[in-house]
């Protein structure tokens, strides 16, 4: 059986997320190429946690990520802009009311 010559191109891009310590959420740290999830995890360990920067790693195929918009500034987030009443600071607290 002949193996198709894929070279580097056969290795998809993976996005890497690392939980630095217990109690923190996973944070995006960068990306890498690997043939499969297992090797992506090993490569991520060698590349992004050489100095104990993490206690847990997620790798996600970059193609599986759906982004909110083609750029970071479109109208997608505008519905939140005029709803200041979602923030506690919107409400005046009457004098004398404690623990609010």
């Amino acid at each position: 059986m002949t193996v198709p010559r894929q070279g580097r191109a056969g290795w998809p891009l993976w996005e890497v997320f690392v939980r630095a310590r217990r109690g923190l959420s996973h944070t995006h740290v960068g990306s890498l190429h690997a043939p499969d999830a297992e090797l992506a995890l090993r490569n991520a360990r060698d590349l992004y946690t050489r100095r104990q920067e993490g206690v847990s790693i997620w790798v996600v195929p970059a193609q599986a990520i759906t982004a909110s918009s083609p750029d970071e500034k479109d109208a997608f987030f505008e519905p939140a802009a005029d709803k200041v009443y979602r923030h506690p600071t919107f409400y005046p607290v009457p004098d004398g009311a404690a623990h609010l």
Partner: peptide, 12 residues
């Protein structure tokens, strides 16, 4: 690189 890619394809 080729062997790793072939293995990944086989597993899939």
């Amino acid at each position: 690189r080729e062997a790793a890619a072939a293995y990944a394809a086989k597993r899939t």
